[in-house]
Design a protein around this nucleic acid. Sequence first.
DNA 1: CCGGTCACG
DNA 2: ACGTACGTGACCGGA
Length: 886
Amino acid sequence: MTESKRLLLIDGNSVAFRAFFALYTSLNSFTNADGLHTNAIFGFNKMLDIMLAQVKPTDALVAFDAGKVTFRTKKYADYKGGRSKTPPELSEQMPEIRRLLTARGIKSYDLPNFEADDIIGTMAKQAEQAGYTTTIFTGDRDLTQLTSATTSVAVSKKGVSEVETYTPAHVEEKLGVRPDQIIEIKGLQGDTSDNYPGVTGVGPKTAVNLIQKYGTIDGVYDHIDEITAKKMKEHLVEDKDSAFSSRDLATIRRDAPVEISLADLTYLGDQQEELVAYYQQMNFQSFLNQMSADADGDDILGLKPVSFTVLTDQNVAEVNKLSGSVSFYLEMPEANYHTSPFVGFVIGQDDNWYVSRDVELLQTPALKQLLSSQKIKKDVFDAKRTYVGLNRLNVSLDNVDFDLLLASYLLDTNENSNDLGRLAFQHGYHDIQSDEEVYGKGAKRAIPDDDQLLFEHLTRKGIAIAALKPSLFDQLETNEQSDLYRNLELPMAFVLAHMEIAGITVDTDRLSEMQSQFTELLAQTQQTIFQEAGEEFNIGSPKQLGHILFEKLGLTPLKKTKTGYSTSVDVLEKLAAEAPIVENILKYRQIAKIQSTYVEGLLKVVHSIDQKVHTRYIQTLTQTGRLSSVDPNLQNIPIRTEEGRRIRQAFIPSHEDWQIFSSDYSQIELRVLAHITHDQNLQAAFKDNEDIHASTARRIFRLAPDAEVTPNMRRQAKAVNFGIVYGISDFGLSQNIGITRKQARTFIDTYFEEYPGVKQYMEDIVASAKEKGYVETIAHRRRYLPDINARNFNQRSFAERTAMNTPIQGSAADIIKIAMIKMEDAIKDMQATMLLQVHDELIFEAPAQEIATLEKLVPSVMDSAVKLEIPLKVESHYGNTWYEAK
DNA sequence: CCGGTCACG
DNA sequence: ACGTACGTGACCGGA
């Protein structure tokens, strides 16, 4: 038997399209010296590498669309109508991709009047008859209709490296029909992106049901009289022509008049000289390196070689020759740097890089002094992480100048990878790998034993930090964000580090006591529920619960989710009157949540050494500038229900006779709103220290000056105020307070009449976002809104609400951060310690005798953090536990 | 690993 | 007509 032939067929346009959008956020860091965008070319080549490695083809072809006019558009003028134009940044790359293919020894081909699909369908059929094994690579799932015993279809999913491979069995499993029936489905349901209609009212589910029952569209019409659903039958009869023509449009041709044959498709492999020239022209350093590495048989994966010195006790003093700015990186492989092991470190500058696995070297005088030196600037990736890690080694870190992670987050909150390599790559620095590439992922993740591998990776991290510093600083300056970086976020990192290191003491006995109580309560409630249900089931499973409530007990399903019946609180609360079981389920859920997340969850993360929990504040995650808290999250400890609130009894001071002290901003977001909108009426309410929700109620209900604001009016006005901050919609408001959409509309209209400044601001900020592509906070924190001009209504509306909300939520975040930096200085001579931040609230512990001082000091620091057009208001509380500080 | 649910501001 | 409130994290069940 001759060697088997393996054919790789690639849908050029769709893969290029996928590559372009997978690397869309890095569009501007992928340009060559001629100003040509190269992201799609780069991504295409990456994907190509993956497919070549996987398929090891003997023959290959990349098919392209010849143009807009095809036999399909001739039959049906609207085919693919309404599609937005290919972005010019992608169009300019298409000819270059074809040049790339030539250099890589792969044939490319297009055929006038036909789409790439038809070329692929035709060649795949020929290959099947000739006994080839064929793999089709595309971004378009419609091609899965071509799968057969010898033809599989790999569809690229997310990013450039993920593909899902379809065989006939996988198609059936996933879609519910055989590959040859896909066109029947498409005929019935149509295709919005290709713009053909199918049959009115028939979506994916109905289409699959019909085809499963009748096999084909012809089968459906042969049995049209069996269809009982009246409306559907009418639509089917009416749209019969459309069904058949839609099926025709969906059918990939397998007999296109191609002028090539299988014999022309031999895969020639890389044309070395041509490819080197090509990569050079495109500035693809990493592909060039990969080529030279492959040629050497070297396995360093295409990166420039780096040199480093391994530090030991003997030569550690060599670091004394470093001066000016040094890059430093401390490797801790686990996310939680309070407990992660240490793997090693790198320190250096220019061509002098020092590495070691032995972190105890950091405690030697040379390194210790260097790291705390006021004269030598330190450039790092994640200053807070580095500071806390070094603190565990009793080494202090001072004079940090550049934090790659933090700067990168401020420049674009959307590009917020935690991986140095990945982030560097996004900023156009390619001479580095991600941790995942070097260390592996999941169960296979491991720090290499090979010193060379580890030290090279660490050295590359050090070099990347240094390499990116000038350009990121430049960009911060251009964005007027240098002040935000230097005087707000960078100092903030160390304030947070101190709070994390301090931790908060947990009364584990109190938690254990609660644990037994809840265990018993849960068991009782569970038994009651089982009796009411008449059987045992898993209450925690929405699927099983839905079955019991809506099928067995016959309650009315009010809302559905993607996967079944919704059993969320708002649904269950509406059903509570129908059956007593519902109330018990709500109770069970509430207690189960407290038990698993707060009692048991918290107990799991208490450090046995100091009886404390040490959260990590993630400073570079949220899109608005807020912090987030993980491991454990101390920003969502219950307060709204009494049972939950008691969790706070377990948060106690770390010393006898100390107290928990807490101060919170009152209505900070609405005050920020009053400030940035300059609305005179809203500002007047705050200047007069009014109850803001009551004040809003007076206005939106147009009450006379002496009329009383009822609690219900105040409640509704409060919801309107929230709605305004969130970027209001009548639907959202109506859902929230259970009124009609029309009533909600009236509230909103009246609100805007009463607060014209707010209305003006909302219009202006959306217009500005559409023009600039981003919005800003008072401290110049920036959030890009790529969807603000989207054609999709949903995406665009979301971006518009975000444009309205982000300056408000983000400026409030700026304010409390400024207050925290000032606070650390204000209490530096006291024993009081700042422990937690919960968005608009700061929590301290302090000796009882310092409480009186704090009561004056903390509010004064907080309300004078920034000067706004309205006053800020702060309220304080204290007690023996966090629970009592209310 | 994702979706549903629910805890917070 | 479209189908929505803004920002988070942890847990569980079930692919």
